[in-house]
Design a protein around this nucleic acid. Structure first.
Lengths: 157, 157
DNA sequence: ACCATAGCGAAAACCATTGTCAACAAGTTT
DNA sequence: AAACTTGTTGACAATGGTTTTCGCTATGGT
């Protein structure tokens, strides 16, 4: 059971909710800092399906006048991934991307054009259950499934 | 239709077959070089399910007395991926891996332990067809599907 | 054999990410 | 509220896989 769920018996707060962050961090002996709030805010403000890189986040914060170091961005992103608040995506070869990992939404997958790099998302419950099956079969506990399909989109072909 | 298929009406050569490489390269205006042969040889000699990084390949060639530069390894790997002879795998965060992409074998997928990094392979025809479906639905032509499941293996938990 | 040019390789450049460490601040104790 | 403890920050250097550069070499066509 996720910590987010534990902290709210009647419904699940978005993982961006200040209370959830506080509970999560305190529970593990971490501290609540301005920087961690700001970073989650940026991720929360991003549109559904908008994947941000560490540099994207850093730039957005600089743009809005915050003074924050790169190391902090990377450290915080790792922390939030470990806490289960974020998903780390390997969409591009040269950069990692992050998005809120809302336990209420079905994991979604990606269709990438090898030519122009455009990314389309799709959902498929069957895929997750296939991953779950395979994990069980091999004695693994499941953390995440990422299904990535490469092809060439209409415009590019 | 793949170029490999075109070059042999009655059956499909393994993608490592010298004739196939020659045909492929000539057809696109590329040249056949000792280095390209050597690199394909190494990949071909690798055991089924053995994923090699660029550096692995370079080291193996140096070990067997070949004199070859890193740039050539990277350039050739990209070329072979573009030609469809290799699959590029994003198994690790810090390195890419390569394996022969034999059109006759079913694409296989990976189950990775987030703790120790061990990789287990598995096959599932259903997954490829789900990828195919989604590609069609969005007007993409399919190139490759990669299904990667993250979890924690028995030993690590 | 000649020649145009694709391909090679050593070294430097790139660039996302990580490590270092002194200064700082969150949360606790007095 | 002040002092304290220790997790956290950020400027900067370092890392490491991959790419670029560019003069030299070798392939394949004429």
């Amino acid at each position: 059971m996720s910590l987010a769920t534990m902290s709210s018996p009647h419904f699940v707060y978005g993982s961006h909710h200040p209370e959830v962050l506080k509970t999560l961090l305190n529970q593990e002996g971490f501290r609540i800092t301005q920087q961690r709030h700001k970073i989650l805010e940026v991720l929360n403000a991003a549109a559904e399906g908008d994947h941000l890189s560490a540099e994207d986040i850093h730039q957005k914060l600089l743009d809005q006048g915050e003074k924050i170091g790169v190391s902090t961005i990377y450290r915080t992103l790792h922390l939030l991934v470990d806490l289960g608040l974020l998903r780390e995506l390997a969409l591009s070869e040269e950069r990692k991307f992050y998005e809120l990992s809302n336990p209420m939404t079905v994991a979604h997958h990606h269709l990438i054009c090898s030519q122009c790099g455009s990314v389309k998302e799709f959902e498929d419950a069957a895929i997750v259950s296939l991953g779950q099956d395979e994990a069980l079969r091999q004695g693994f506990s499941l953390l995440d499934c990422q299904f990535t399909v490469y092809g060439v989109c209409e415009q590019c072909s």
